[in-house]
Nucleic acid binder design. Sequence first.
DNA 1: GCCAACGTTGGC
DNA 2: GCCAACGTTGGC
Length: 153
Amino acid sequence: MNYWLMKSEPDVFSFSDLKSRPKKTEPWNGVRNYQARNFMRDEMKVGDLILFYHSSCEIPGVAGIARVSSTPYPDATQFDKKSEYYDAKATSENPRWILIDVSYERDLKNHVSLDEIRKHPELSPMRLLQKGNRLSILPVSKEEFNFIVKLGT
DNA sequence: GCCAACGTTGGC
DNA sequence: GCCAACGTTGGC
């Protein structure tokens, strides 16, 4: 089992939005970065646990726990001309953008802010903290995952 | 709103 | 294949 961190802007789609979906599940559409796509297509497996991270907001940080709940399949928005994520170069025979479904797993008692994450030397190797990191999907080690869950409990 | 850091695009 | 120009991300 692998562990991940996925960023989302809470103004667009928050952890509580995920929780209030009918099946508490959401296709992770709109990713248009190849590295992030490759993680979803090649490495994320059903059952993998996810730190759901809020970015570009007042207090950036981990808002809750989610999990991967589907195998990879094409992102429907790439074929939708009305979508902001439409990609003219993608075809159904040769889709360019692949996603997985993300499901609510459980709440954390407290959000774990980016400030808090920076305070702990155990978490300093996290890719989230490395300079210039902009990827919206990042691998997290088991130790880092457990440490953050503990901070949020 | 600023800006550093990066990814992508396209001309050559 | 190089690289300048441009666009995006995301913390501050």
